[in-house]
């Protein structure tokens, strides 16, 4: 697929994130601003143009924070709150409702293993175990080299291809414990 030439406002709040370029050692510092430059302002304006209220831009802007910085820091929440006339507490309330907003930096490769029913029937928990073993981490913890964060995740919506593993923004399907070392090798 070709790169977007210019971002259409219709999709401005819906850009993928979870990329190696913004995670691990590439994570932005806590106080990295979101809307201090042309790109940030433009994104903000485009997103706001799609909703009748400023508040509705909250999820799109949290997505943007994560896309840009790799995680959603407290200063980022405050900055978003300021732009949307919300309190920081309100943004905190919303951000913590969802599981995809990382409130601290994660490894360069965020590995999320589905262990929900269909995947569990096909060995999801063993796949998770294997990833933890190979990366030497515990669930949710980032490996010392900053490369991997392995987590259990709920249904990823690809149940016919169990076990499903999401590595950053990509799905790996029909994953078996045996395939785990190979997947990790491909990453770096």
């Amino acid at each position: 697929m070709s790169d977007e030439v210019e971002l259409h406002p219709a999709v401005a709040g819906a850009q993928p994130y979870m990329r190696a370029e913004t995670q691990g050692e590439n994570s932005a510092p806590e106080d990295a601003p979101l809307f201090d430059d042309g790109a940030g302002r433009e994104r903000l304006e485009k997103v706001l143009s799609r909703y009748p209220t400023r508040r509705a831009a909250l999820l799109p802007l949290l997505n943007y924070a994560q896309e840009r910085n790799g995680w959603v820091s407290r200063p980022a929440m405050k900055e978003i709150a300021g732009e949307l006339d919300l309190t920081p507490a309100y943004v905190h309330s919303v951000a913590t409702f969802y599981t995809m907003y990382n409130q601290r930096p994660v490894g360069k490769y965020l590995i999320q293993v589905c262990t929900n029913i269909s995947c569990d029937l096909c060995g999801g928990e063993e796949v998770l175990e294997r990833f933890l073993e190979e990366t030497g981490t515990r669930p949710g913890e980032t490996s010392e080299d900053g490369l991997y964060t392995v987590m259990e995740v709920e249904c990823l919506g690809a149940c016919g291809f169990a076990t499903v593993v999401q590595v950053n923004d990509e799905y790996y399907e029909d994953v078996t414990p045996e395939r785990v070392p190979e997947i990790l090798d491909e990453l770096d």
Partner: peptide, 22 residues
């Protein structure tokens, strides 16, 4: 009309919170 107290998290992990450290 001071939106500084909120529910954080969800499910049985939900709790009442202010913005952290404020």
């Amino acid at each position: 009309q001071d939106d500084s107290l909120v529910v954080a998290q969800r499910g049985d992990r939900a709790y009442i919170d202010t913005f952290p450290d404020e």
